[in-house]
């Protein structure tokens, strides 16, 4: 099924998928939002109106300026342009996503493959360990880890990565457990293929759609929990422009200077919504169950 699709067939399949994807307006909007966030984050120094307001910069004479043409999102308590800081804040959020999912997804998928394919004691050990991790609320555990280590961006990324792999393990485990009795796996076995070949050339490609949907949906949650950690002061430290930290410091001046908190909050909402719409669209498109 997956082994020898000719190139033309594959192209056609892709085109057909894109056609179906385009017919789902929510998914297209989601994709556009996510792309926008990525583009803005990558070209932050070019896009941001006041890139110098991101590092060490203060202008107390301009504090708490309401939204205007010069400062569309207003300025914060140190007189810094909030729009510029939101744009750079996206960089931190996306770094967090890439780092956390980049570590957690491969690790979780590998364990899921092993547990599902081998069964027996391998399954018992891996799946019980997964259960233990699933039993701990992610935010509480992340709080404990970052508070015990020192509160930095790196530590909060490590804490989140430590907590994220188990979801993927469980998902891949159930997928593989049903796939391993498929005929093409049996056929590969009869043909004398190694376990390595079966795991990574037969089973893994058939999990890709599940993984990509789950990962896309996860991205939003990683941003949300990351923002939660920094809201509580356990993430990136000032003056790093982190969205959660900005919401938190802006909250000190609610409701008079609402823009300090509302705009970074909306920025978080925007990304999460984008990833969720995209993930839902992908799920419909690839027709997979992820939960």
């Amino acid at each position: 099924m997956s082994l020898t699709t000719p190139r033309a067939d594959r192209l056609r399949a892709v085109r057909r998928a894109w056609y179906r994807f385009r017919r789902n307006p929510a998914a297209v909007v989601g994709l556009a939002m996510v792309l926008l966030v990525f583009v803005v984050a990558i070209f932050a120094p070019l896009v941001a109106p006041f890139p110098e307001h991101v590092g060490g910069f203060v202008d107390f004479r301009n504090r708490h300026q309401p939204p205007s043409w010069t400062h569309p999102f207003g300025t914060d308590n140190a007189g810094r342009d909030i729009l510029s800081r939101v744009i750079f804040g996206y960089r931190i959020s996306l770094t967090l996503v890439v780092f956390v999912l980049g570590l957690a997804v491969p690790f979780g998928v590998l364990l899921g493959l092993l547990a599902g394919y081998y069964g027996g004691w391998v399954e018992t050990v891996i799946m019980r360990l997964t259960d233990v991790f699933l039993a701990i609320p992610a935010l509480v555990m992340a709080l404990a880890i970052t508070a015990a280590l020192s509160p930095t961006l790196l530590n909060s990324m490590i804490a989140l990565a430590l907590l994220w792999w188990n979801w993927h393990t469980r998902l891949i485990y159930t997928t593989v457990a049903s796939l391993k009795h498929e005929e093409y796996v049996e056929a590969a076995k009869v043909a004398g293929a190694s376990d390595f070949h079966i795991l990574f050339r037969e089973l893994l490609p058939n999990c890709v759609s599940v993984i990509s949907v789950k990962t896309t949906l996860d991205a939003g949650f990683v941003i949300l929990i990351g923002a939660g950690l920094s809201f509580l002061g356990l993430g990136a430290q000032p003056p790093t422009p982190d969205l959660g930290t900005m919401v938190s410091s802006g909250a000190n001046y609610l409701p008079e200077y609402w823009w300090g908190s509302i705009f970074p909050g909306l920025a978080i909402l925007f990304t999460i919504l984008g990833f969720n719409l995209l993930g839902d669209g992908l799920r419909d498109l690839l027709d997979v169950e992820v939960n």
Partner: peptide, 29 residues
């Protein structure tokens, strides 16, 4: 002191000036 906005503002001011003067400033709340 953590969660004290005016102290954080002074810290930010310190950071801005001393980064320019060639220091690598670590702010600790």
């Amino acid at each position: 002191v953590a969660n004290t906005p005016f102290e954080e503002e002074i810290a930010l001011m310190f950071d801005a000036v001393f980064t320019e003067l060639g220091f690598d400033v670590t702010l600790m709340a």
